[in-house]
Amino acid sequence: MRRVIILGSTGSIGVQALDVIRANPERFEVVGLVAGTNREALDAQAAEFGVADTGLGVTDAEQIVRDVEADVVLNGITGSVGLGPTLATLAAGRTLALANKESLIVGGDLVKDAAEPGQIVPVDSEHSAIAQALRSGTAGEVSRLVLTASGGPFRGRSRESMHGVTPREALAHPTWDMGLVVTTNSATLVNKGLEVIEAHLLFDVAYADIEVTVHPQSVVHSMVEFVDGSTIAQASPPDMRLPISLGLDWPSRVAGVGVPIDWTASHAWTFEPLDESAFPAVALAKQVGRAGGSFPAVFNAANEQAVAAFHSGRIGFLDIVDTVQRVVDAHEMPSDVVTIESLAEAESWARATADALIAKA
């Protein structure tokens, strides 16, 4: 029986995790629940699963992670505010099922240094796919990681054609049902850029050996190419409950958690090169990742401000990544030594700088 704490329990990842646990009561027990602000939904979850330890917000998350005995903590919080709970989970010796990619990206080496080997299990569908494929060979046999991207709602469009895109259009993702920030990031492909940084940090593969290909069917979730020329791909119909279940009980699989591909039917899967002129966020993320230090924190914070400004009508869709680029270009790291305090200062600077640029737009 795996004792589970869920952070972000009322969000998309948390709700789907509870679906997995509800269907497998003999395998998982929920011992802690933390939501953002939705107390009513949190109380309903706690009543259903018999959970005594609940909380709202990041401070409660960190306390519950420290004080409640658990085997695994699923961090499904959105945004860099998840860094504190991520570090608290690692310090407490729990397995971290990581859906909050921002905490790893912003924390970088702080998170990696705090983690024991195998303590972090990725929950993003792409990184879960890579983790599964990597079991087919040794680290020395890996040639490249290939992340797949659906292309979002604007796949195939030129940069010029995206002037005037509305928030409603940006939120019309063709495959996944996600929150406002993540869905917008998928439209700009900032999310894929963040996932490139995450892949580098999780799997210690150089940025030059991490590629992105556009796969609109979202059935092949990512691939690993090995030195002998073979490529191992993980394929399944798009359903986050599969990677969530692996995060909760890695490396064991949970029977029946997903519906398999119907191999008696015809399928057509396509792969297209990424148009970096229309979607420059991935190239910018690689630049940021190579720079390291506080640059990923600046990238992420500036993006969060720009996304909020887009949805409030203060800037256009294309201005999101343009604003992030300008903030990154203006950033100067005060020191090579990264601390929680220096990351917080870098984020505050990035948000203020982004806000100033947005105000002039």
Rank of each mutant, 00 (worst) to 15 (best):
S342N: 14
L83D: 09
L274E: 12
S230I: 11
D177S: 15
I21P: 06
P238E: 00
T175A: 07
F203V: 05
I358Q: 01
E102S: 06
S230N: 14
R159V: 03
G313W: 15
F28L: 07
P122H: 04
V165H: 08
A92Q: 05
G32F: 00
K360Q: 15
S143V: 04
D228N: 15
P296H: 02
N100I: 03
S218Y: 04
V181L: 04
A206K: 08
T339D: 14
G36N: 12
Q305I: 12
V328D: 12
R159P: 01
D336C: 02
D204F: 04
D71S: 01
H311Y: 03
R66M: 13
K112L: 13
L33F: 13
N100W: 04
T166L: 01
I105R: 07
H331Y: 15
P260W: 10
S186C: 14
V72I: 11
V254I: 14
P251E: 01
A265V: 01
R2L: 07
A356T: 14
V51M: 04
A291P: 14
E198R: 00
G151K: 10
L171F: 06
T323P: 07
D60E: 15
A92N: 12
G50Y: 02
V182L: 14
D322F: 08
S266M: 09
I197F: 01
M333Q: 15
E198L: 00
D329Y: 10
N185P: 06
G137T: 11
G193V: 03
V30K: 01
R2F: 11
P237S: 07
L274G: 00
T184M: 10
T188G: 00
A308I: 03
A92C: 04
P237E: 12
V190Q: 07
E102C: 09
D336L: 06
A359Q: 12
L7P: 02
P280I: 09
D319I: 09
A52C: 07
F271T: 09
P238D: 03
R144M: 05
A291D: 10
L110T: 05
S136L: 05
G118D: 13
S294F: 02
A346Q: 04
T183N: 04
R3E: 12
F28M: 02
S236Q: 09
T148A: 03
D124K: 02
M333G: 11
K286G: 11
T89N: 06
V81T: 15
S277K: 04
S150V: 03
G156F: 07
H163Y: 14
A61C: 06
L318I: 09
V72K: 08
V165C: 00
A129N: 11
R314M: 10
L87C: 13
A91Q: 15
L18E: 14
A199P: 14
D113S: 12
L134E: 05
R144G: 04
A187D: 02
N300V: 08
V219T: 10
G137D: 11
I77L: 14
A350Q: 11
L7R: 06
L357Y: 08
I340E: 10
V190S: 02
V219C: 07
